[in-house]
Computed example of a mutant assay.
Amino acid sequence: MGEAQGTAIATVQVDSDVVRVTRWDFPVKGANTGWHRHAYDYVVVPMMDGTLAIKGADGTVTQAPLKAGVSYARPAGVEHDVINDTDGPMAFVEIEVLRGG
């Protein structure tokens, strides 16, 4: 899978030698990031409660219920499309670790 343009809105807030912080806004149910592979380890911080559908490269779809402020981390190499499965807007902040401190 290659990178594909999605309908979610990515706003880079910080882009340094150490981290990249991006806010992802999904304005409606079904908005998505598009297919992508993470080149770096990353942390996701949900901005609100909601559910995302995570479509993996193998075609499986996993429901991911999120709670505002409850973070999770994933390693580099993850390939997926992230889809808003909430009946309304959804948003999270993604923090990519570009190099060790």
Rank of each mutant, 00 (worst) to 15 (best):
residue 9 I to C: 13
residue 72 Y to V: 03
residue 9 I to S: 13
residue 70 V to I: 05
residue 25 D to Y: 04
residue 67 K to C: 00
residue 60 T to M: 10
residue 11 T to G: 11
residue 22 T to W: 02
residue 59 G to Q: 04
residue 63 Q to Y: 03
residue 29 K to N: 06
residue 65 P to A: 11
residue 25 D to N: 08
residue 57 A to H: 14
residue 62 T to R: 07
residue 62 T to Y: 06
residue 58 D to S: 14
residue 15 D to Q: 05
residue 52 L to E: 06
residue 73 A to C: 01
residue 28 V to A: 15
residue 63 Q to I: 00
residue 11 T to C: 15
residue 17 D to F: 01
residue 29 K to Y: 06
residue 47 M to Y: 10
residue 9 I to V: 13
residue 72 Y to M: 00
residue 72 Y to C: 02
residue 55 K to V: 14
residue 23 R to V: 14
residue 18 V to D: 12
residue 76 A to K: 12
residue 54 I to E: 05
residue 79 E to F: 06
residue 55 K to Q: 15
residue 61 V to I: 14
residue 71 S to A: 09
residue 39 A to V: 13
residue 57 A to F: 14
residue 45 V to C: 01
residue 18 V to P: 02
residue 55 K to S: 03
residue 35 W to E: 12
residue 72 Y to I: 12
residue 33 T to W: 04
residue 68 A to T: 12
residue 19 V to P: 07
residue 63 Q to W: 01
residue 49 D to K: 11
residue 79 E to V: 00
residue 50 G to S: 08
residue 20 R to P: 00
residue 25 D to F: 05
residue 38 H to E: 08
residue 47 M to R: 05
residue 58 D to V: 07
residue 23 R to F: 06
residue 48 M to K: 01
residue 22 T to L: 12
residue 40 Y to R: 03
residue 44 V to D: 05
residue 76 A to M: 08
residue 59 G to R: 07
residue 57 A to C: 12
residue 74 R to C: 09
residue 43 V to K: 06
residue 42 Y to R: 09
residue 18 V to F: 04
residue 64 A to E: 05
residue 60 T to V: 12
residue 39 A to H: 13
residue 52 L to I: 08
residue 58 D to E: 11
residue 12 V to Q: 13
residue 30 G to P: 10
residue 23 R to T: 15
residue 17 D to R: 09
residue 67 K to S: 10
residue 20 R to H: 07
residue 32 N to A: 15
residue 37 R to L: 13
residue 60 T to A: 06
residue 58 D to C: 09
residue 54 I to D: 03
residue 27 P to M: 12
residue 25 D to S: 10
residue 55 K to R: 15
residue 11 T to W: 07
residue 68 A to F: 12
residue 37 R to I: 14
residue 19 V to S: 02
residue 60 T to R: 12
residue 29 K to L: 14
residue 38 H to A: 10
residue 68 A to P: 11
residue 62 T to E: 09
residue 33 T to S: 14
residue 49 D to E: 03
residue 27 P to K: 08
residue 25 D to E: 09
residue 32 N to T: 10
residue 65 P to Y: 01
residue 12 V to L: 08
residue 39 A to F: 02
residue 13 Q to T: 10
residue 58 D to T: 04
residue 31 A to F: 04
residue 50 G to Y: 00
residue 54 I to K: 04
residue 74 R to V: 07
residue 75 P to E: 04
residue 63 Q to C: 03
residue 14 V to W: 06
residue 40 Y to D: 02
residue 68 A to K: 15
residue 25 D to W: 04
residue 35 W to S: 08
residue 31 A to G: 11
residue 74 R to D: 00
residue 21 V to G: 07
residue 40 Y to W: 07
residue 12 V to P: 06
residue 12 V to N: 13
residue 15 D to C: 09
residue 28 V to M: 15
residue 37 R to Y: 09
residue 14 V to M: 10
residue 60 T to D: 08
residue 16 S to K: 09
residue 78 V to A: 01
residue 19 V to R: 01
residue 52 L to W: 00
residue 11 T to Y: 14
residue 75 P to W: 05
residue 15 D to I: 09
residue 57 A to I: 15
residue 66 L to K: 00
residue 78 V to D: 00
residue 56 G to L: 15
residue 53 A to F: 09
residue 63 Q to A: 14
residue 65 P to R: 03
residue 26 F to S: 05
residue 39 A to L: 07
residue 15 D to G: 02
residue 16 S to Q: 11
residue 37 R to N: 13
